[in-house]
Amino acid sequence: MAVLLVAEINDGDLAMDATAKAVSAAAQLGDVTVLCAGADCSKAAAQAATISGVEKVLCAQDEVYGHQLAEPVADLIVSLAGGFEHITAPATAGAKNILPRVAALLDVMVISDAIAVVDSVTFERPIYAGNALQTVKSSDGKKVVTFRTSTFEAAETGGAAPVETIATVGSNGLSTWIEDTVAASDRPELTSAKIVVSGGRGVGSEENFEIIKALADKLNAGIGASRAAVDSGYAPNDWQVGQTGKVVAPDLYIACGISGAIQHLAGMKDSKIIVAINKDEEAPIFQVADFGLVADLFEAVPELTAKLG
């Protein structure tokens, strides 16, 4: 059975990690054709062709696809949909913007953030921010699915799939790109960082977040915050980890001064190793931490920063 996988492309480059992880998920459904859509997608298409398990790469090159705007990219995908039983993508912000639009145009439901493929019509996905898992079976003719990449291993590279340039369908001019503002920081992006250091209400102020930043910089980690810290104005909202913020699953998550409210745990409990530093030994965060340290974070965190690396 034929599977279309929409590649994640940033500025002409393939997001290799996200795409290769989605390939290993999609390959469980059938032969994978990767779609690269961009203003200049030749580079991304060549990169996608090297992912093992990819049968073919389609390269749709047009200015209108340059910034992955939902309307033209969805129209392109719908124009190709006839040949595929599954339309898939890594569950990135880009794909979450586009694929539900594709699904509605095809009059099918979207299956967002699948974490396991049970069979060709049945998928497992988290609901309630991961506090429950649901197995859903689709009755739609075409299945539109995004895969949560943190739960799949990346497919190997070493393949050499053929690349085919395809016709494009143009734009209806509903939206125009103005600018991208990349976060003004050299730190890794929160959801893809291997290590995340987070601060909670216990950090006490925006200024005090400097000690969290120092540890993060030492570890080349992303920075997170609990909702309590965000609500208190200590940290910006895009740092928020939790049910109403970002869901992260890094190799190492260091929670500093975070009590461990349910809504926070939902956003980080799939991390491989969790470290909790909190002066309250009764804090619920210790119930999920692999390594807990009952200590004043203002002493322990700088000490940890000094002793690591």
């Binding site: 912000a93 125009t176 790109w177 991208d180 990349v182 992006e189």
Partner: peptide, 13 residues
Amino acid sequence: REVDGGLQTISVR
């Protein structure tokens, strides 16, 4: 818009 790794600004009709 909040996208992975930053912000994107678009104009929509």
